[in-house]
Write a protein that binds this DNA or RNA. Sequence first.
DNA 1: CCAATAACCGTATGGCCATACGATTATTAC
DNA 2: GTAATAATCGTATGGCCATACGGTTATTGG
Lengths: 202, 202
Amino acid sequence: MAVCELISEGGLDAVTVARTAESAGISVGLVQHYFPTKDGMLLHAFEHVSARIRSRIEERISGGVEHRRPISRVLAGAMAELIPMDETRRTEFRVSRVFAGRSLDVPALADVDARAAQVLRGDIAQAVHNGKECGEVAADLDPWPAAVRLAAVTEGLSMQVYRDFAYVNGVSAADVAASIIDSELAAVFTGECLQYTSKDDA
Amino acid sequence: MAVCELISEGGLDAVTVARTAESAGISVGLVQHYFPTKDGMLLHAFEHVSARIRSRIEERISGGVEHRRPISRVLAGAMAELIPMDETRRTEFRVSRVFAGRSLDVPALADVDARAAQVLRGDIAQAVHNGKECGEVAADLDPWPAAVRLAAVTEGLSMQVYRDFAYVNGVSAADVAASIIDSELAAVFTGECLQYTSKDDA
DNA sequence: CCAATAACCGTATGGCCATACGATTATTAC
DNA sequence: GTAATAATCGTATGGCCATACGGTTATTGG
């Protein structure tokens, strides 16, 4: 979608109907034909990128499960998908973050954003749950707080990595991120975080 | 600052020079007198809120250290300061997040954002380092990756909490966040995350 | 073949906004 | 007291943009 291209280059301000039309090689009238209002166009674009990211993640998980790879490895790969470490992921990150920023004021966008986050946590929780049946995860672990934790650390890391792309003393930010994700997964899977699960039940 | 008020109500689009002037009870000409350009005004506002948040965090840390409270408790309090759990923190979160969104396209804002993140990590790392001297932290722990991890989890949690303010089956999002922060701190302080520190050195 | 529907175009317009600008009043410095 | 500097105002303007609108060409269904 042309909108995403414009956003990634110059942010939401760069997205005018005229420019979008030009960038897509069509006329202003036509984009109006498809999207009577600009807000609708933006909403559609946001849904579009959310869906794409989501399907990548889900493919990665289901693919890994099919190949009987250990759940922790599968999740590590899926979460790494969200870290902006190469230029492609970086632009994707930028686009969804711009929309997320706008979500703070536009309820329709906030919906998409919230739903995306919810789905991600759901997928993670599902994977953790599967891990139980394979004996990879402690049986008394509540998958939901675990999923919140994993989703949070991934999202937070993605921003740290985005800001400081090249990192301290030679170690790349992406490597640090991967290591942190690994150790988070280990923590969750060895049941180290049971402590707050039980605390919640109190 | 009137700008922040407008942002928190209607996002950056709601911030026009005229409205800002009105909201501040002055004339358009006067705001021009102080900020020849609108971008400058925005930049100033962003610096303003960044500095305020930062000073709150730093006070909290230095205050805790003075009272000889355990570092892990001090850090937990400082990090909780960043979680949007009440209405005040929520609007503050919204404002800084709106600016962060714009940072993706405006280098000047990106600078402020990156610097703020850097300072936060620095403060955390310093606290962790102090914990060593008190024997609270394993001596061979590199404070920097630990700080990255803690900053990331805090930032990620703040967004999860913001999106789903009221949370699943009666447990408030803020409680979950606090528990997760606690367990993160425990993990870092017991040296559980040494694994990625050593991996980095390899 | 022909209507109706969809794809597609270009221009016009009314609104909003950042900034420019000149004027007016307070404050300070000498 | 006066000149210079700062604070303050109101209006004008030129630009950009979303949307409206009327027209033209394809596509399709019967």
